[in-house]
């Protein structure tokens, strides 16, 4: 149905020739914009509902009171995946976890996955690469959080927390209860959830549209296999290079995902592209700045370093699996 709409607008209303580069580009833009908008609205809204009802405090109490033999890494990481990406909540959550006596590695697992798997990235992945790749992205994001969290947990980094956070950690208390909001009926919460969802969409929309537009131009005008020469799977440096290039980009750059999709269509290996994407959304300077309040520079660098290595490693694995 969307294909027909895109065809109608491009070839009928705008009278572009189906074989021309401009025709290809415009058709691509209309189709991708419509599809991604629908997915973005749907997924952001669903995640908003989940998030409004997710008992964060109970999870923390559960994690701090039970011995889980490794399962805690999974729980923290999966929890990071379903909470929306807001760097401003990640610091209070980090401290809340530390305060509850939850090991640093588990806390890191949460902190890594939280921005990595977010509703905007999911919607864009689903729209551009299909559900199979989306599931792979989400599950590997969770796995990556667990792995990197586990490694960081083994490094004994407690001494590199800021002093006041260490004081909190030493006085960690196992809490039994926390403030819970009075139950508000779903009907009353819906407008608030919808408003939040709209806020998120409005925030990323310009970037996404620009991304699709650039992607569309490339789709129409760049010849097949153009980039392959530089970033092909045979080039051993392609993965680390694209990951390191991606770290300084901020996550509003999820808008570049449409560009990446075109790069993949034009010959760049999918694994390299996924690794690039993970580095863009997972690691950012603004996040590092916020974390400075709770961690020493050395800890932040170790944290970023371990995550970067894990992303590079997963990029290689993807390139082997996803051929």
């Amino acid at each position: 149905m969307l294909t027909e709409l895109a065809n109608y607008i491009t070839f009928h209303l705008l009278q572009l020739a189906p074989e021309s580069a401009a025709g290809h580009a415009v058709q691509f833009f209309v189709y991708d914009t419509a599809k991604i908008l629908l997915l973005l609205v749907g997924i952001v809204f669903i995640m908003g509902i989940i998030n409004a009802y997710f008992p964060v405090d109970r999870l923390r109490i559960y994690l701090s009171n039970n011995k889980l033999y490794g399962l805690e890494y999974f729980l923290a990481s999966a929890f990071g995946a379903i909470t929306p990406f807001c760097s401003c909540s990640s610091v209070p959550l980090f401290i809340g976890f530390v305060k509850g006596g939850i090991p640093l590695g588990v806390t890191f697992a949460y902190l890594i996955t939280s921005p990595l798997v977010n509703e905007v990235a999911i919607a864009l992945f689903a729209g551009l690469f299909g559900w199979k790749i989306t599931v792979i992205y989400v599950s590997s994001g969770i796995l990556l959080g667990m792995t990197a969290g586990f490694i960081l947990g083994k490094l004994n980094l407690e001494n590199y927390l800021t002093d006041w956070v260490r004081a909190i950690q030493q006085n960690a208390i196992r809490e039994e209860a926390a403030f819970e909001e009075a139950h508000v009926p779903f009907r009353d919460r819906l407008p608030v959830i919808a408003k939040d969802a709209w806020g998120i969409i409005k925030g990323v929309l310009p970037y996404v549209l620009i991304g699709i537009a650039i992607g569309a131009v490339m789709h129409g005008y760049v010849p097949q296999g153009f980039f392959e020469r530089y970033l092909s799977a045979d080039n051993i440096w392609a993965v680390p290079l694209s990951v390191i290039l991606a770290v300084p980009l901020y996550s509003s750059a999820s808008g570049i995902l449409p560009v990446i999709q075109v790069l993949v269509a034009k010959g760049i290996p999918l694994g390299t592209a996924i690794a690039f994407m993970m580095a863009v959304v997972g690691l950012s300077f603004p996040e590092a700045m916020l974390l400075k309040k709770v961690m020493s520079m050395k800890l932040i660098l170790t944290f970023f370093g371990v995550v970067t290595l894990c992303i590079i490693f997963s990029g290689y694995i993807f390139n082997i699996i996803l051929v």
């Binding site: 964060v56 405090d57 923390r60 401003c88 909540s89 610091v91 209070p92 959550l93 401290i95 809340g96 305060k99 006041w164 909190i168 926390a178 403030f179 309040k293 709770v294």
Partner: peptide, 13 residues
């Protein structure tokens, strides 16, 4: 200030 905020024992802002 994050230290002030944490006195209220909250996880989300």
């Amino acid at each position: 200030d994050i230290q002030e905020i944490m006195k209220y024992n909250v996880l989300t802002t």
